[in-house]
Design a protein around this nucleic acid. Structure first.
Lengths: 248, 248
DNA sequence: ACAAAAGTGTTTTTTATACACCCATGC
DNA sequence: GCATGGGTGTATAAAAAACACTTTTGT
């Protein structure tokens, strides 16, 4: 932002014409269906040109007085009702010609997309479908060709998700208040793939970290021994914040 | 970008006025002065309002037909001549009211900053000072109050630098072609602080990774036993790419 | 000779990995 | 009783951390 006109050009005309931008926000919203062991991403069907009829991420243009993050929350809230979520900025895609609406001579507006990454609780996430718009959870391995450069954004988001899971306690933002260690393990397995760790080792590593507290309450899910319900103890976690954690 | 007007509003007027954006790029450029064991960041003195006379990161507005990354490289090249560098996108700051040029009623343009993070070779970096503009390397612990939200950006960049150093081979992009293991160790020490690792352990860990090849050539620097010059072997490193690496 | 810097090796502790096995429940 | 999922423990391997020591130079 600063520093332009630092060369001795007149203040009125820089050496080159500046690009004029429309700024949009696109959300890569993940959730984990633990029942079916599937990692899902939320797609919406485009209702207008360009890319009419193609799937894409829920997005919106940023309004006056609205922060980027607010815009991300707004479009999310328009598509899905959810109590708990994790959201952070992913990456900004802003090269010319990523949107066909840009006129070829690159006059007119450039379209810039600030992408956000979100993780929501699948069980309580309620999709908001109005009459016209298609909206659906897609298993990650069945995502079709998307509008714009959204396939690329998805790849980026997926990488971020895996990293987040390994190094930060995002999982707990997206699990129910009370959960079993198997719930947690399944979530990790679904996102990171089988073989990231053995259940028993995962278990003892997590417990040793000391921020999971056993409520003593047991739940039985079909056959097998009932499991203890645990709770994420934010206070106990606080001192570990910004220390390198390993959940793997 | 997609998804706007998905509700049943007329296509001409959305429910709210959209923000009109000017998009800038700001570079957080780091270098390491190994001679003096200092981590430096490049600052330029602003020559115009707002924040005239305050230090800031080198930045520029994005031109027509220019990608964000191109803009980042352009402003970098205007301020500094350098042969080797590492550059990647950092974060996008785009809340309203981060730039005083925005009119209070939030009409007119919003200023959005896509920040980039760069690491350059200190020894060969040549600052380009024209008559009017101040430009200087600042030790990280002596950085003054900066223009805009640049102090916040700096904090963000510093965190990224530390992470990069721990998990990726950026250091080699910024060391000379041939370097001693002490050079490497000093670089790490300067960025991560003393006590991140003992020299001998650091040494054996790095060598065990197998992508540093001993050229056999020795250099003597004052007193003490001469050191071997090493080279980063990109081929040997290739298979380790995107595997979790630990340089700590 | 000795200080300074480079380089090697050893010991101890901690963490990761792979399993084997016991426990409590539904059917 | 036995299959199923939950939970504990142990044995081994690997890695991290601490530190003692040797080598080669300049002065």
């Amino acid at each position: 932002m600063p520093g332009r006109f630092q060369r001795k050009t007149a203040n009125s005309v820089s050496s080159q014409a500046l690009a004029d931008f429309k700024v949009g926000v696109d959300n890569v919203i993940f959730s984990v269906d633990t029942a079916q062991n599937r990692l899902l991403v939320l797609l919406v069907m485009r209702q207008e040109e360009p890319f009419l009829g193609q799937w894409s991420f829920p997005g919106t243009l940023v309004r006056r007085g609205e922060s980027l993050e607010d815009a991300a929350y707004r479009i999310l809230a328009e598509k899905i009702r959810v109590k708990n979520l994790y959201l952070e900025q992913l990456y900004t895609f802003g090269g010319p010609n990523r949107d066909p609406r840009e006129s070829p001579g690159s006059y007119g507006s450039r379209y810039l997309s600030v992408s956000y990454f979100a993780l929501v609780r699948f069980a309580e996430a309620e999709l908001i479908a109005d009459r016209v718009s298609g909206i659906a959870w897609y298993p990650l391995d069945q995502v079709p060709q998307l509008a714009f450069d959204h396939n690329q954004i998805l790849e980026y988001g997926h990488r971020r998700l895996r990293n987040k899971l390994e190094y930060s306690p995002v999982a707990f933002e997206v699990l129910p208040e009370l959960f079993t260690l198997s719930d947690l393990y399944q979530l990790y397995t679904t996102v990171l793939g089988e073989g990231f760790s053995d259940y028993s080792n995962f278990r003892s590593r997590l417990l040793k970290l000391g921020f999971l507290s056993d409520t003593g309450v047991k739940v039985s899910r079909g056959a097998g021994r009932p499991a203890s319900l645990y709770r994420f103890d934010a206070e106990a976690f606080a001192p570990l914040k910004d220390k390198p954690l390993v959940f793997i």
